[in-house]
Nucleic acid binder design. Structure first.
Lengths: 346, 346
DNA sequence: TTATATTGCGCAATCGATTGTGCAAATAGA
DNA sequence: TCTATTTGCACAATCGATTGCGCAATATAA
């Protein structure tokens, strides 16, 4: 009977069958030099005793732990929790486990997390950088240890690392284009720190869409670092109490769009008749506000699976010639009540 | 200079200082039998070479991996993602890492996840069971391996395992009491599978509140397994097209409350005037529906930190005498528009 | 029948850190 | 001064699995 106190090891099995541990190890890996009889005897005994390989010992010897590290700013953002779900469901089918760490948007914690992942001998790392992160120098530690890295959504650096991103530029472009089609002429933007690709791309999409519609770009209407509900609320107040108020807001975050919507409602502005509002990410609440908020879908589960797929491909690829890939997921604008129509529309 | 290809080991440090690896190992652990000079020389060389302990080797030898396993139905449920966030932030400060697994509400996957956690030699497991899970027999594997377990929210079994739960009974009781105070007299319930504590407790709270208000309990108004938006929608249709329609709904899930709200609005019922609606969990969207949905707060982050605290306490406790603890977090009813008042109110 | 492959498995080192034991030198006590 | 204790470190086994090498025994070829 299997001993309950301590795990069954290959030595236990070896002893019982009068072979050595090396034979057991090879048999369990279907090594061709082990005879069929021996192999089957070992395997059935392994099943009988409910043997499971000690991953620490195996990992120590082989350097592979079948674990991937995931580093995100926060686990409880809807988007990131979706990504984590996608990663976990993909890699668990491939026999990998998921080690999680959150940076709380702190660069220092991100550095620490990477170090912790390297120490834990993960086979690969999937990462979305913090708001504070300015470059990818800290990833060198993982690269030095030959640990593949995939960045998603908030990516950064020189492009020597696999990336999975949304087509933020087109998402923003199409969103603003939609506002222009409604007749909006004075479209403000709530953005994020422009050293991050996602916010920079959304800003560029916004500006290019304005230009393509022959609308002037007013710096006064471009607000950076307006990503939270409070910031959106405050920025709206400033914006609409100036003598150059916009007639639409395109926010790079659903939260700041929500803040804008609340301020507008509280101050008697009609949405969408007088002011159209659009957000970004399709957070669940956007469907339920009054009016519901138009936004751009950001498919977290899909990004997670895609990132995991790229990573595992790189982990398991034999050839060491690595050319970084960049996967770009298509965007999809979701039109809701906050931009259904506009007074200026013909 | 530290070799970039391969990690620095205690042997590298030992060689350079003409001591043995055991001395290095002991010095790094502040073992009293190592002289102060030797200790400091070793420590400064370790810093210089950026040494970090190989957790696999260490874990193999000591059996402690400084990792805790977290098993949840889905990572992307707002509540669970909050719990995960709370756990991660708590244990990372204590020097632990977090291994994540999701069961997708499948008992079979839950069994598999536990086995995977045991195989990975986690130091402890935090778990919220799947909807399919009927008992805690599968946890025996972890217990046999002396791995402490803490269950949270959806807990099950004979009580021999640490638990962190919400006071679902009082939450439900107070919610229904609130509806009664408004003048509601015919309160229906949307529940979940009653073998799970949370749904059973909410049902009991509902029934006891009715009794305390001298209202009859009508089995026709008690709907089990109505947890999703679709189920709430469908159940509402059945309920309100019968000749014994309720004048309020207390749902054990915000999602089924949402389904009810949508059906009621589509079919011309006024909420809250004609029908009051309450949910459970305070999902973010509940604040933004029209009308906003009254609900019961379920503090995920706090539960996560509490569960992590209990677990690490048990892991690090010296004495082997273990008495299972049950932490019960207070509930907090959030009254919103969907139960602000009622036509029958005096 | 002899030379050559092939098959089947054991031996022993290895991955890196930990820890019980042993032994010599230094210190303390008598 | 001589024994007893403490201090400081080395030796070697251990955790469990993996893997290059070697050596028989069997099978195949010549």
């Amino acid at each position: 009977m299997a001993n309950k106190k301590t795990r069954v090891t290959i030595h236990d099995i070896a002893r019982e069958l009068n072979v050595t541990a090396s034979t057991v190890s090879r048999a369990l890996q279907d090594h061709p030099r082990i005879g069929a009889d021996t192999r089957e005897a070992i395997k059935s005994l392994a099943v009988k005793y409910n043997y499971s390989r000690n991953m620490l010992a195996s990992g120590l010897r082989t350097g592979r732990m079948n674990t991937i590290g995931v580093i995100v700013p926060r686990t409880n953002r809807h988007f990131f929790s979706n990504v984590i779900g996608g990663i976990e469901s993909y890699v668990s089918e491939k026999g990998y486990q998921v080690l999680i760490s959150q940076t709380q948007e702190s660069y220092q914690k991100e550095v620490f997390s990477i170090k912790a992942m390297v120490d834990a001998h993960v086979d690969g790392i999937i990462l979305s950088v913090s708001l504070e992160t300015m470059d990818d120098a800290h990833l060198q530690l993982a690269i030095d240890h030959k640990i593949p890295v995939v960045m998603f959504d908030r990516v950064i650096g020189s492009g020597q690392i696999n990336q999975v991103v949304l087509d933020d530029y087109n998402g923003a472009f199409n969103a603003v284009k939609h506002l222009l089609d409604l007749g909006c002429e004075r479209i403000a933007h709530f953005g994020g720190p422009s050293h991050l690709n996602v916010y920079n791309d959304r800003l560029r999409g916004y500006m290019d869409a304005l230009q393509s519609g022959n609308k002037p770009i007013n710096p006064h209407w471009i607000n950076n670092d307006v990503l939270t509900e409070d910031a959106g609320y405050a920025a709206s107040e400033t914006l609409f109490q100036s003598d150059n108020a916009p007639d639409a807001i395109f926010a790079a975050s659903d939260y700041s769009a929500l803040g804008a919507l609340l301020w507008l409602k509280e101050n008697g502005y009609k949405v969408p008749e007088e002011v159209c509002v659009m957000g970004f990410s399709n957070e669940p609440f956007t469907a339920f506000t009054t009016p519901s908020i138009s936004t751009v879908e950001q498919p977290g589960g899909e990004m997670g699976r895609m990132a995991a797929s790229l990573l595992i491909g790189q982990i398991e690829s034999e050839n060491s010639t690595f050319t970084p890939q960049k996967e770009v997921l298509k965007t999809h604008v979701i039109i809701r009540e906050s931009s259904k129509f506009h007074l200026k529309q013909q």
